[in-house]
Structures are given as C-alpha cells and as structure tokens.
Design a binder for these strands. Structure first.
Lengths: 256, 256
DNA sequence: CCCGATCTGTAATGAATCGCACAGAACGAT
DNA sequence: ATCGTTCTGTGCGATTCATTACAGATCGGG
C-alpha cells in the first residue's frame, strides 16, 4: 500500500525520520477504510497503538451511564488520535467513531515508542502535540467551571470559528455542520437550551443561521462577552475548495 | 547551590542525562524559596520556563471575571509545573501560588528544549508526563460534563483518596486538608453546596469528617456510585512520617 | 420528487443549585 | 488562654436549566 507511505511521510510528525525508519513504520502499520457512522474503537478495547486519520472525520466521545454523550473532540484529516496508548494505558477510555467515510492508519504503540527513543525530533514533536492538546483541554475546562450555558456556547462558537472559520460576505462562516444536539454534547447541556441560546444570539445580531450553517457576524463583540481577545485566524475563503491533502498542515506544531 | 543539583539529579525526568548535561542544567537554573500564600507567576507573565517544586505545595488556579477561583491542580514536591512554556506559549494562562512555604527551581524553556533534542529519553519522559496530565484532565472533564454536583464531589473525593489516601482504623484518610471552599473551587460548585453534600454523604455512612479531615469509610460503595471500579492504591500508613525527599517518586512515569 | 427519519423551535413545569444571610465552631497567632 | 479570622452548618427566595411534550421544518436516500 504505497498510499500509507505517502501519508506517513507527509505528516509533520514524521517528516524528520529517515526513509528507512518510515519504511519500517509503514510495514508494521495497517491502513483501513471505514464507512460513516462506524466504530473505530470502544472503551475497554485494548489500547495498543495510535491512529492517523488520512481522510474523513472521527468523533471522540464518552457515554455516561444515563446515556448522554460527552463529545471530547472531532479529529480532522492529518491528525493523530488515540495516542494516549503511548503512555502505557492498557485500554481505551473513550469511543472513537467515524462521522464521515474515513481511512485510518493504525500505528502500533511499541513501534512508535521505539522510534521516539531513536529520534529525539519525533519525541519532541509528540511532546508538543500532547502539550497543545493539553492546553486546549485545559482551556475548555476553564470555560466550563462556573460558567453559564450561554458562556460555554459562546466559547465553543469562538473555538469553532478559529478552527473552521471561513470568510463570507456577512461575517465568518463556520465550516462544519453540527446539530444542536452535537453542540449540547460538547458543552454538557441540552439540545433545547442550545436551540434557545442560538435563537437569542441571533436576535441580538451576533450571528446568523442559514441552511444549517452558522455565520458569526460580530466575532469581536462575541469574544468580548467571554473576556478573551479574539485573534482573526487567517480565514480561508468560503467556497474555495480546499485541496484534499491537508495532512501536512493539520498537525502543525507551531504555537497556533 | 549543591542542593539544586541534588534535586535535579533525583528527579525521574532527568535521571538519564549525563552528568555534564545536569551540570549545565543546574548552572542555568535558579532556585528560590517562597513564603506561603505568595505568587509564583500570574497570567500574562512571560512563560519562559518550567518549574520544579522541591518543597511545599503550589496551587494552580484561574480567576474568572466574576471573581471565582477555578482550581486546576495542586502540585506536590518533585512535580514539574508551568511546563506548557515548552510548547511555545508566550505567556502563562493560569495563576501559580504557594499554599505552604516552598522552594522552587526554575528551568529556562530554551535550555530544556535543547536538552530534549539531545536526549530522546528526556523527550520521551516529557511526552509521558504531558500524556499523563492530559489523561487526568480528560477524566476530570468527563466527570464534569452532564454530572450533578454530588457526582462531581464523589469523583473528586475518590481522586483525592488515590492521591493522598492513608490507611486508618475506620477507613482511608485523605491526607490533605482542603476547605469546603477549595473543594467547591475544584468541581465548579459553591461552598454551601459542598457543605451540604458532605453532610449527606456522612449521614449515609460513606465517610466521616473529624478534625478537618475526611475519612472515606466505604470507598467501594462510593466508587460504585460513579460506576468506576476503585483500585486500592497501596495506601501508606497514617501517622507514618514519610521520608522528606519524595522527589524521585512523585514524577514517576509509570502508568499509575 | 417523495417520504421516513432526523433536526429545530417553543412552551410549561419542576428540580437542582446558586446567592445571600447569619450564627456557631474551629483555628492560629500573639 | 484569648481574640480576631477563617471555616462550617443551615435555611430560604431567586434563577438557571433539564425535562417533557409536541408541531413544523429540513434532510437525504431511493
């Protein structure tokens, strides 16, 4: 499978490896495609490796006993996930399922660890990856403790704007479609509350909802609400079809 | 300062470094003592290095605009903190202040990064450290989303039991004194609610509060409540004075 | 283009918990 | 031991938010 080779080589994390190291990595990796809405792994599955998403979208979540789904993250092409297997976890602690048809490369943990001891560059890269994700989740924690649902939702919308924002005539369009239920599952609220809050925000002129897409009309004012300055994230043009292979970019290790 | 040398050398993270690397690290590090309740760093301070706590206790927290304090973590001797400086953050994102008189070694970020590129072992160690903390915080996030205050508190008590638990005649004693306000600030609730919940739990016979200390009488039943098995953590004997230099142990990188 | 399935909007009800107020208890520095 | 300070216990009104219920809109596969 020459494709696996291509994807591995073009992932930032691995670019400093020698070609024989990549070859070896490729040989013990397994590439697999999944239809949409299928399970990649479940809690209690053995955590024996990390996964590299090359196409599609994966949702990481956790089901509570009462049947509520806490969404931990969405994974985009080029991103690594399930990488906590590296620290010696024996089993997964969350559910990973595809949202779109996806292709995924599985990388055994022991092999990756072996490579990390060989390549300090790789190990440094993984450190930074972990660090970035930890910072993200710590910010999220802060936005949840003591905060009203409105605050949480606004915070989430701004995060989505930074990650998926595209310029459009009347503001920044969020380039990922999430149902109100999904949004609620990210901030730990309910569908009805999210519907209502979005309605309120719309009536306040802060955003507009059209054809299942959210357009942030006033990012500045929205971010004032949560007292964090908003950095315009070089948004790409809406409707400009992004080139498929974003693999190299998505794992960028620069400090955002 | 020969002591700094000793502490650095005895930290798990650094044990694989050559003696000249340690020497160099020591030379650019700065050791400092702080009285209790003093500030180590504030948000917006430049994040130019990581810190190693050798004695005392440090609280990491974040103040909301309404004046509430979200406690992110307590740092114990031998633990590294402020290490997100390594991923290129320019400023701190939280407050670090001492709870007890403390002595802290400051390690410049650029030096640490240089060392990581030299020693894959060190880089691997830092990866695992980041990974462990991320896992911890992810678990905490899960215990917050959709959960009642009772659930959050029980979860926290079990966490504290694993971290600070000591055997005692009538159950496991939590060896750290936190006020109800502190507990509330960790789970994002209010002091009054925590007081009430602790009262309820006590009347249910799950725990007992004596002289500002919490004794878990029935860890098993408590953990059933949150549907997570409880692993008895080789608890040390209460009243057995622990040897002072726990530095080497606390940063243990084994998967708990 | 059509129809079942999923998603969105709205409203009424009630539970959880916050905020405030205050009294008594425990602590710790002198 | 003493006294000021911080912590704990408790009660009650106010508020936010989950829950339930249902109708209309929208989507997407055939």
């Amino acid at each position: 499978m020459p494709e696996a080779h291509w994807y591995i080589k073009n992932c930032r994390l691995f670019e400093r490896l020698s070609s024989e190291q990549i070859l070896r990595l490729e040989r013990c990796s397994r590439m697999r495609t999944f239809p949409k809405h299928s399970s990649v792994y479940l809690p209690t599955d053995p955590a024996d490796g990390a996964l590299l998403l090359t196409q599609g979208r994966v949702k990481l979540s956790h089901l509570t006993e009462e049947g509520k789904e806490a969404i931990l993250a969405y994974i985009e092409p080029g991103e690594l996930f399930g990488e906590l297997a590296l620290i010696g976890d024996s089993t997964r602690e969350e559910t990973a399922e595809t949202v779109l048809p996806s292709t995924i490369i599985f990388i055994p943990a022991d092999e990756l660890e072996r490579l990390m001891t060989q390549s300090a560059d790789l190990a440094l890269g993984v450190s930074k990856l972990f660090g970035l994700r930890r910072r993200r989740i710590e910010r999220r924690l802060k936005s949840l403790l003591f905060r009203s649902n409105r605050h949480r939702l606004v915070h989430l919308l701004l995060e989505l704007t930074e990650q998926y924002g595209k310029n459009s005539p009347e503001g920044i369009l969020i380039g990922i479609r999430l149902s109100h239920q999904d949004l609620a599952n990210i901030i730990g609220s309910t569908r009805e509350t999210v519907t209502m809050l979005l309605g309120t925000l719309q009536s306040e002129g802060l955003l507009r909802i059209s054809r299942q897409c959210i357009v942030i009309r006033n990012p500045q004012k929205l971010s004032e609400e949560i007292h964090t300055p908003f950095h315009l994230p070089q948004p790409t043009e809406a409707h400009s079809e992004l080139p498929r292979p974003r693999a190299a970019q998505a794992l960028s290790l620069k400090p955002e």
